[in-house]
Design a protein around this nucleic acid. Structure first.
Lengths: 112, 112
DNA sequence: TTTATTACCTTGTATCACAAAGTATACAAA
DNA sequence: TTTGTATACTTTGTGATACAAGGTAATAAA
C-alpha cells in the first residue's frame, strides 16, 4: 500500500475525531443549515460529505445539543436551520478542554 | 443522555484519530512491544485497550510501517518487539504535517 | 499443582463515515 | 409545458474498526 494511502487514512480518522466539535463550534457563532455547514467545513479543509453530516446533525439534535427550525430559502427547497442549545454550549466547553488536553498529550509524545 | 456522556464519546473519537500516529511516534524513539506501548499510552491518558492495539499493530505491520522480532522476557512469555521501518518514518513525518494542519484548522474555527 | 503475572491473540457487537441513490423544491430556458 | 439546473434534505448498504470479553500460553513463586 502506498504511503500516502496510510496518511490519507489517518488524516480521515483525525478529522472524524473532531467533526462533532467543529459543528458545535460553527453553530455556536450563528445558526446554520447542513449544506452551509458543509461548505464551511470544506473551505477549512475539513473534508466531509452529505452522508456524514446529516446523520451527525440528527444525532446531536437527539442528544439535545441542537434544535432546528425550517426556513424558506431564496431559491430551492426550505432549509433546516440548526441552533445550538445551552446544553450544546456546555458540551462545547467540555470539548474545548478535551481538545486542549489531546493537543498537549501529542505535543509531549512527539517532543520527548 | 448526560452531557458528560457526549463529551466522553467525543474524547474517545478524538483519541481514535491519533492512535496510529501515537504508536508510530512511540516506536520512532525505541523498539517496544504491545503491553509496554499500552502502558505508555495509558500514562499519557490516551486510553486504549488490548483489543484495540493488537489488531492495529498488525495492520501497521501489514502496511510495511513496522517490522517485529521475538525476544525472551525476563519473566513470562516472549515479547513481540516492534520496530519502525523507513516507510514508517516517512509516514510519521506526513502525519506530523497532517496533525499540525488539523490543529491549525481547529484554532481558526474556534477563534474566528 | 495451584496461583499470579505477564503477554499475545481472537471473536462478536456496535458504531459510524462514506458512496451512492433517492426525494423534493424553485426557477429559468426551451 | 417540459426540461434542465441548482439547491437541499434523507436513506440505504458497505466496510472499517474500537471495544468488551474471553482464550491461550510461558514463567516463577507459593
Amino acid at each position: 500500500m502506498d504511503i500516502m494511502n496510510n496518511v490519507e487514512n489517518v488524516k480521515t480518522q483525525m478529522r472524524r475525531g473532531v467533526l462533532e466539535y467543529c459543528i458545535l463550534s460553527i453553530l455556536s457563532k450563528k445558526d446554520s443549515y447542513a449544506s452551509s455547514i458543509l461548505s464551511e467545513l470544506k473551505d477549512a479543509r475539513m473534508i466531509v460529505v452529505e452522508g456524514t453530516i446529516y446523520p451527525l446533525l440528527i444525532r446531536q439534535k437527539n442528544q439535545g445539543l441542537l434544535t432546528y427550525r425550517w426556513e424558506e430559502s431564496p431559491q430551492g427547497p426550505p432549509r433546516k436551520y440548526y441552533q445550538i442549545t445551552d446544553k450544546g454550549r456546555r458540551a462545547l466547553e467540555e470539548m474545548d478542554s478535551a481538545w486542549q488536553e489531546i493537543v498537549e498529550t501529542i505535543r509531549l509524545l512527539r517532543d520527548k
